[in-house]
Amino acid sequence: MGMGISKNTQEAMKTLLEQGKRFDGRKCVDYRDISVTYNVSNAAEGSARVMMGKTEVIAGVKLTLDKPYPDSPDKGNLMVSGDLLPLASPRYEVGPPKFDAIELPRLVDRSIRESHVIELDKLVVKAGEKVWTVIIDIYPINDDGNLVDAAVCAAIAALRQAKMPGITEAGFPDYKNRTKQGLPLAKEVIPLSVTIFKLGNALFVDPTREEAEAAEVKCNFGLTKQGKKYMVHSTQKTGAKPFTQKELETSAVLIGEKYDELYDKLKKVL
C-alpha cells in the first residue's frame, strides 16, 4: 500500500504468497515471535514494550482527573493517542499526522473501548464532577510492519500492569504516591488485534514492513474470546482493493484461530 518497494519485488512477493510462501520462510498465516516487557517508564501508571519480530511498539498509560463528558456523567473516560515518530522509520516525517498516524490510535481505541475491558463506571471520583481519564499513548520505536496488532498487545499489557495514582488532599492526582491498586479491568477480557493483509489472491498475517508495503489492502479486526465464541469489536478495511464475500468469511474463521495463537504466546506475560 506504500510506494517504498519496487514493482518487481511486489510481483515476486505476490507469486510466492499465492503459493503460500514468504521471503522469511514463514507460512501465510504465521506470526513472528512476540515478546512483552514492562516498565518502559516509571513515571507512567503502566507501560509495556512489545516486540513482534523486528517491530517494536511501546505503550504507556497515564491517568488524569477530569470532568466527565456530558453524555456519560457516571463514567470515566478513555483516550488513545500516539504518533508515528520519525525515530521509527525513514518513511515517517515530522509534521501534521498523515492518515496512518490518525488510523493507528483510532483502531487501538476501538478495539480496547468496544471490548469493555476497562470498567469505566468504576473510574468515578464524584459522579457528574470528577472522573479518571485513562490515556493510552502508543509509540512505534521500530516499524517493521503490523503496527496495529503489536500496538493493541502493548496497550492491553500496559493497562493490566498499570496502578492507580493516589489523590492529594487538594483533590489532584498524586503520581508520586501510586496506590497498589490496579485499574478496574474485566480480567478475563483480553482484546487482541488480528490484521489480515491481501496481495493478489493471497491472504496473510503479520507482514514485515516490505510485505505491508506490497499488500494491496488490509482488514483489521479487534476481538476477544468469550467462552468458546470469538467476539469482534472493531473492523476496518484499509486500501482500495475490495475483499470478496468469501475472503471476509475466511477471515472471520482465521481471526479466531490467530486469536488463540496470540493468546497462547501472551498469556504467560500478560
Binding site: E114, S115, C219, Y230, V232, T235, K237, L248, G256
Partner: peptide
C-alpha cells in the same frame, strides 16, 4: 468493511 461493537465471528 468497518465494524464497531460486539459480534460473534
Amino acid at each position: 468493511v468497518q465494524l464497531d461493537g460486539n459480534i460473534s465471528t
